[in-house]
């Protein structure tokens, strides 16, 4: 059963992650939270997919083949239409340095693996709502 977000619309999430298990997990928890999810497994596909059909929130892994998370983020922020797209970065690299770089590139949330499922869901939903308000 899909729950609606605060403003009533269903949140559409794009997951960019190359580990199949993690994709499965994220899909599971987000859909249980009432979102609709799609997944891509490399950076190039991510950029293309966003251009084609922008989601409400992008859930972005750092270590992606073809273009890594930073490159995707930069591209999104530089794009004309989707500069304001809320991005949640997920990564196993959790050092301060990485967080700072990501923030300087304009990421909205930065989550390190392993993560708490609830935490991911909350952040995504919050950004989705805020994003909707901001758009």
């Amino acid at each position: 059963m899909t729950k609606s977000g605060a403003d009533g619309s269903v949140k559409r999430i794009l997951i960019a992650e190359d580990e199949p298990n993690i994709v499965e997990l994220l899909t599971f928890i987000l859909e249980r939270a009432g979102c609709v999810t799609r997944a891509v497994t490399d950076g190039e596909a991510a950029i293309a997919e966003i251009r084609r059909d922008a989601p409400d929130v992008l859930l972005l892994d750092l270590m992606l083949p073809k273009h890594d998370g930073y490159a995707v983020l930069k591209s999104v922020r530089a794009s004309a239409d989707n500069a304001g797209l809320p991005v949640v970065m997920l990564t196993a690299k959790g050092q301060e340095r990485d967080r700072k770089v990501a923030e300087s590139l304009g990421v909205n949330a930065f989550i390190t693996k392993p993560f708490s499922n609830q935490d991911v869901v909350d952040q995504v939903l919050a950004l989705a709502g805020a994003g909707a308000a901001g758009r």
């Binding site: 580990e19 298990n21 993690i22 997990l25 928890i29 196993a92 959790g94 390190t112 693996k113 392993p114 993560f115 499922n117």
Partner: peptide, 10 residues
């Protein structure tokens, strides 16, 4: 961390 993530989250 990657396998750990799976383990924990699942």
């Amino acid at each position: 961390r990657t396998p750990m993530t799976s383990i924990r989250s699942f």
